[in-house]
Amino acid sequence: MPMNPGDIEDMIKAGIPGAKVTIRDLAGDGDHYAAEVVAEAFRGKTRVQQHQMVYDALKGHMGGTLHALALQTSAPA
Rank of each mutant, 00 (worst) to 15 (best):
I8Q: 10
A41K: 04
N4F: 06
G18Q: 04
L69Q: 01
A27R: 13
S74C: 11
A14M: 11
A57P: 03
A14P: 11
G18K: 04
M53L: 08
Y55M: 12
T22V: 12
P5I: 00
V37L: 02
M1C: 13
D56I: 00
D7T: 14
M11Q: 14
D10I: 04
H51G: 04
F42Q: 01
A77S: 12
R24F: 04
V21Y: 04
H67A: 13
L26Q: 10
K45G: 04
M62F: 12
I12V: 12
Q49M: 13
P76H: 06
G6R: 14
N4H: 14
D7K: 13
A68Q: 11
I12L: 08
Q52W: 07
H51K: 06
Q72T: 14
G44S: 06
Y33R: 09
R43I: 09
D31T: 08
G15M: 00
V21S: 08
T73W: 03
P2M: 00
M3Q: 10
R24A: 13
R24H: 12
A68H: 12
A35Y: 00
L71Q: 14
S74G: 15
D56A: 15
G63K: 09
A68S: 15
A35L: 02
M53H: 03
F42H: 03
V37K: 00
R43D: 14
D25I: 01
K59H: 14
I8P: 12
D31N: 14
T65I: 11
G15A: 00
Q72S: 14
G28Q: 09
